[in-house]
Nucleic acid binder design. Structure first.
Lengths: 202, 202
DNA sequence: CTTTGCATTAACCAAATGGTTGAACCAGTT
DNA sequence: AACTGGTTCAACCATTTGGTTAATGCAAAG
């Protein structure tokens, strides 16, 4: 469409789209070039190889995901409200990039080593330990029920992310269409937060 | 190792392993042949093409997933105990085949049409509608809180499945090892069930 | 106008990959 | 022993694919 943009960004945008849709192995350099409206050789001119290009896209995607999570977790709110905020903010972020989580999770499983290396070096790496501690403390104080912090955190993430990675399955099983799906997810911000807070109220 | 087995099954087993690990696009026919300890030509002798072989494996995987879900859902128990049973049975099933859900979800997103076709034809297709109705009725009767049945169902599935599709992420973020991860999941059968039942108690 | 240096492309290349084939192998049958 | 049918394999083939290259375009500098 618009070839006005800077070529480098053009490439990244195209690569993001193709890689997200097809995965590393399934994506073709030619497809990315076509999507960006440029010659295939340009891809190698700017980013040495397929792997390098992928790494760039993947890192950015992972970064955004963690960034958003981190922001919500670091909010300076009482735990119950913080949980509400995490759920709201995270689901909203996913609504903007609905295919990112499956993309990330999928490629993550393929090269778990790559993750563990680059993970902690990220400034966007969320301070999980502190959040877990916060849950434990709130439990002690009787603000919430005493629960396993990790399990609770897993539950929160699960309910936010799962609908997006399982979107085709959900649509297939329930028979709802795209519009209804979006409504469902919208509704979810409220529902999940209430669900969690009810489950952990002391 | 053991080439004693029937070649056909040998192939399916190998294909399942390779396809699960690498996905359709990432899997190599040669790898499958090696894994099965046979010549590449045999793959085509028994299953015409890569796609046909994949379809076979994929269908079986999807089938098992739905089968297990279906069984749990059709149990003749009061709703609250049924939920306990669903969670327990589903997580246990996933523990046996931990990479299946990500595999299925991933390939499902790549060809959503394929799904919607073959989906309802399956005898293993779970009777979702009835389960949703059951939740609605229980809500009316005051056995549980009144909630959106679909949202509740989504929550149940989310919390069971997510840890398996996000396993590398969980391990990366929390820093736990394989043994601890298994413990976490084991613990989860209880935790998730309690969590849900607490959240929906009237 | 020429030069210089980056950007861009068409054509090309080598390796990988899904798929095919003709011959060999190996039971069981006659 | 010869035949028959399915099974197995090494070698081969055509296409795809990531990557390279040599030539061209082109704008700013001289």
């Amino acid at each position: 469409m618009s070839q006005e943009r800077n070529t480098e960004e053009q490439i990244i945008a195209a690569a993001k789209k193709i890689f997200s849709a097809k995965g590393l192995a399934g994506a073709r350099m030619q497809d990315i070039a076509d999507e960006a409206g440029i010659n295939k050789a340009m891809l190698h001119y700017y980013y040495r190889s397929k792997e390098k290009l992928f790494e760039m896209v993947f890192n950015e995607a992972l970064d955004r995901l963690l960034q958003r999570l981190s922001n919500a977790i670091n909010t300076n709110l009482p735990l119950t409200e913080k949980i509400r905020e995490i759920v709201r903010s995270y689901i909203e972020g996913l609504m903007e990039n609905p295919h990112v989580p499956l993309f990330v999770l999928n490629e993550l499983q393929q090269q778990p080593e790559l993750l563990i290396k680059q993970f902690r070096s990220k400034p966007s790496f969320p301070n999980i330990q502190q959040f877990l501690m916060e849950i434990a403390v709130a439990g002690e104080k009787g603000l919430i029920k005493k629960v396993s912090p990790i399990q609770l955190m897993l539950n929160i993430l699960s309910m936010c992310v799962f609908p997006f990675v399982a979107k085709p399955l959900v649509k297939g099983v329930t028979g709802i269409d795209e519009v209804q799906f979006k409504l469902l997810v919208e509704e979810r911000k409220q529902f999940v937060a209430d669900f969690i807070l009810t489950a952990i109220q002391p």
